[in-house]
Computed example of a mutant assay.
Amino acid sequence: MSTVYSVDIQITAPVNDTEVTDRVADAVTNLFPGADVDHQHGELVATAHDMEHFSECLHRQEILDTARGAFFEHLQGDTFSFDLKKQAAFQEVVNFAVGEPDELGEIHVRVRVNDPDAESYIDHVAPPTKEGKPIDPDE
C-alpha cells in the first residue's frame, strides 16, 4: 500500500522589470506543473500540493543526494525549504541555488508536510541512494 502525503508547498519568485512575467511563471510550472500561480506586486506566488514531477526531474538528472542535502540543510520541524535557479527551471532542469544570489533572484520553495512527517516525505521525493541508485526499502 502506498503512503498518502499531505503537503502544502509555497513557491515565490521575484519578477524583475527586465523579465516577462509569463516566462517566470513557466519556470515555476515546468517543475511544479500543478501549481496555482498568482502575480503579486513584483513577484509570483504559487501554491502546490505535490512534488511528483519535481521528484521525476531529480531522478532523471540523477541528483537525489544533492536534493536530500538541500532539503535536510533547511529542515525545521515539519517544514523544509530550498532555492532554485530560474533559468534552469525555465528549461525544466533542477539547479539548486547556493552561494551568491543570482542577479534575477531565485525561486524559493517552502514545503510544509502535514502527514506523515517531513523526513518520510523527503525520502519519497528524493530517496536515499547507494552508489548513486535509489535504495529499494523492500529489498
Rank of each mutant, 00 (worst) to 15 (best):
I9F: 11
A88I: 03
Y121N: 05
V93A: 14
P14L: 03
G105A: 01
V109T: 04
L75V: 05
E73A: 13
A89D: 08
G77K: 03
A35S: 06
V109F: 14
F54W: 11
K86N: 11
P134H: 06
T79W: 03
H124W: 13
D83F: 09
F54Q: 13
D8H: 08
L84Y: 06
R23N: 14
L64C: 05
E131Y: 13
P14E: 01
V4A: 15
T129N: 14
E139F: 11
K85G: 10
H59T: 03
A67M: 09
L58H: 09
Q76D: 14
V7E: 04
D65E: 14
V125R: 03
D26Y: 04
A46L: 04
V98Y: 06
D50C: 02
A25E: 14
E139P: 15
V94N: 13
A27E: 11
N95G: 11
F71S: 01
D8A: 10
D36S: 11
T12K: 05
D38T: 12
D22V: 02
F80E: 04
A27Q: 09
I107N: 12
L31K: 04
P127N: 12
K130L: 04
A48T: 03
V113S: 14
L44E: 03
D17C: 03
F71T: 09
G42T: 02
D50T: 04
M51S: 10
E52L: 06
V20N: 01
V125C: 02
A48Q: 07
H124C: 10
Q76A: 06
A126W: 01
F82P: 13
H39F: 11
E131G: 01
E139S: 08
K130W: 14
V109C: 06
T66Y: 07
I9E: 15
H59L: 02
R60C: 02
H49Y: 14
T21M: 13
H41M: 05
Y121T: 01
P116E: 05
E100W: 15
T3K: 15
Q87Y: 02
A126V: 00
E106F: 12
N95H: 15
F96Y: 07
A35R: 07
E92P: 01
R68D: 10
L104I: 00
T29H: 02
A35N: 02
F82D: 06
I107S: 05
V37T: 06
A97D: 10
S55M: 12
K130P: 12
L58W: 07
D17Q: 08
Q76L: 12
Q10K: 01
A126M: 06
V93T: 10
G42E: 07
T47Q: 11
F32P: 12
F54D: 10
G99D: 09
S2E: 15
R68K: 11
A97F: 05
Q40M: 05
D22I: 00
I63F: 10
T21A: 15
K86P: 01
D83P: 07
P101V: 02
L75P: 11
L64I: 08
H41T: 09
P137C: 00
V125H: 12
D17S: 09
A25D: 13
